[in-house]
Nucleic acid binder design. Structure first.
Lengths: 219, 219
DNA sequence: CATTCGATCTAACAACCGTTAGATTGACCG
DNA sequence: CGGTCAATCTAACGGTTGTTAGATCGAATG
C-alpha cells in the first residue's frame, strides 16, 4: 500500500547526487579534487572563484557525500569520497561528449592546434613509454603529480618548464598531459616545446581518464 | 587570454546533464525508459505522475539530449539516447549506495524480507540457469521483456503470475527479477510463489545492472 | 592577548525550477 | 466534419538556488 513514499525517497536520495553535479562551478571543483586533496584556498585560486562561494559549493558537495574533509591547522583539506566519484565525473563528461553536439564543438574550439594531439592508443603509448621511445611529462603542479601520475611520467610543472628545458631529450618525442580534456596546461606545454625545437605532442587524458579505462598509475 | 569563458562553457554543458538528473521524478522516468521505449502516457501511468508534468520532465531530459523521441500516430515514444545513459543511471545509483547511508537504510527498509534475496553471484546464477538448475522469470510487463531480458529467462508478468502457476516447476528454485533494486515487483512475485509452496528467491539486478556488469542479454 | 588569515556563517537579492491547472495542438475515428 | 484523446504549451504560484557582501569563528603566530 505504502510503496510510493519509500520508493520516491530512493529517487530523492539519488537526485541529491545529481543536484550536486548540476552546477558548473561544482563540477570544476570536482575535477580539481580528482587530481588530489586540496585546501579551500587552493581550490578557490585554481578555479578562479571567490573563496566564500567556493566554501558554499564545497558544503553542497559535502552534503551530497561526494567529498570529505580533513582539518590540518588553519587549513581544511577536501578530497573526493572515493574513486567511484571521479569515475562518475568521467562518465558524466563522456555522456556529454557523446550526446551534446554543442559540447563537442566547444571542446574542439578550445584546443588551439588539433595537430598537437598524440595519435597513439593508450596501450601503445604505455608500451613506448616503458621502452623509453617517448618521454612522458606531467605538467601539473607537483602536489598533483605526487598524488598519482601515469607510469613512466616525469613531473615537469608548466611554470618550470622553460627553466628545465635542459632536462628534456631532443632526440625523442615528448608527450605531455595534464588534468584532463578540459585542461589547457598540456596545450601550453606543447606550444612552448615546439617553439624551442622539440618534438612534442599531448594526450587529452588525465590521471582519472587513464584510471577509468582500466590502466594502472604510479604514486 | 580568453580561456575562462570557453572553459566554463564546457562545465556548463556537463552541468546540463547533471541538472537533468537532479530531479527524483526525472530519475524515475529514466529508470523506466531504461527498460525500453515507452509512450508519455505509459510513463505517466507507471510513474504515477500527471501526464502534463511527465511531458514537462521529458522535455527537460530531451533538452539535455538524454532521451530521443519517435512519433507513431497519436503517440510519442520516448527512449534513452544510448546505452551509456542507462549506464550513467546505474553509476549514479551506485555512488548513492556507496556514500549515502540514508539511501542504504531506505533501500533496506523497502525490501520486506531480506531472506528472499538470492545469494548467488551473477556468473554462477547464469551458469545454473544455463544448465536448468534454476528457473529464471522476468516479472516485468511483456513489452519490457521483449525489449531485452536476461539469458534463459522466461516472461512471467506479475499480473499473470497467479494464473500461470502451472507453467512453473515445483522441483527447482525459481529466481525472479524485475526492473532493478528500486522495483518491488520481484518481491511481490517471491511472496506469492512462496505462499503457494514454491521455492523462490529474487535478485535485485534488472537488465541494466546486468549489462553494466558486462554480462550479455537476449532480445 | 591581540593579530592574522583560512574557512564558515548569515542576510538579501535575483533568477530559476517544480508543480498545478487551463488552453491548445495534432492525429485518428466514427 | 466534429469528437476524442495523446501530447504539448502557457501562465501563475511558491519554494529553492547561486551569488554577493558583510560578519563571525577558530587555529596559528608574534
Amino acid at each position: 500500500m505504502k510503496e510510493k513514499p519509500s520508493k520516491s525517497y530512493l529517487y530523492e536520495h539519488v537526485a541529491r547526487i545529481g543536484k550536486a553535479l548540476s552546477s558548473p562551478k561544482r563540477l570544476e571543483l570536482v575535477e580539481l579534487l580528482a587530481q588530489g586533496e586540496k585546501s579551500v584556498e587552493t581550490l578557490a585560486a585554481q578555479a578562479g572563484i571567490d573563496m566564500r562561494l567556493t566554501s558554499a559549493h564545497l558544503k553542497a558537495l559535502r552534503e551530497a557525500c561526494l567529498v570529505e574533509t580533513r582539518r590540518e591547522g588553519k587549513y581544511v583539506h577536501y578530497r573526493l569520497s572515493g574513486p567511484d566519484v571521479s569515475q562518475l565525473w568521467v562518465s558524466l563528461r563522456d555522456v556529454a561528449e557523446e550526446h551534446l553536439i554543442e559540447f563537442r564543438l566547444a571542446l574542439a574550439q578550445m584546443v588551439s592546434d588539433p595537430d598537437s594531439l598524440c595519435s597513439e592508443s593508450r596501450e601503445s603509448l604505455l608500451q613506448k613509454a616503458r621502452q623509453g621511445e617517448v618521454f612522458v611529462i606531467d605538467v601539473r603542479p607537483p602536489s598533483e603529480y605526487n598524488a598519482g601520475h601515469l607510469p613512466f611520467a616525469r613531473s615537469m610543472p608548466l611554470g618550470e618548464l622553460e627553466k628545465r628545458l635542459a632536462d628534456l631529450p631532443s632526440d625523442r618525442t615528448i608527450v605531455a598531459y595534464c588534468r584532463g580534456p578540459f585542461c589547457l596546461m598540456s596545450d601550453e606545454a606543447v606550444k612552448l616545446l615546439r617553439a624551442r625545437g622539440f618534438t612534442a605532442s599531448k594526450i587529452t587524458d588525465g590521471v582519472n581518464e587513464w584510471v577509468a579505462s582500466g590502466l594502472p598509475i604510479e604514486t
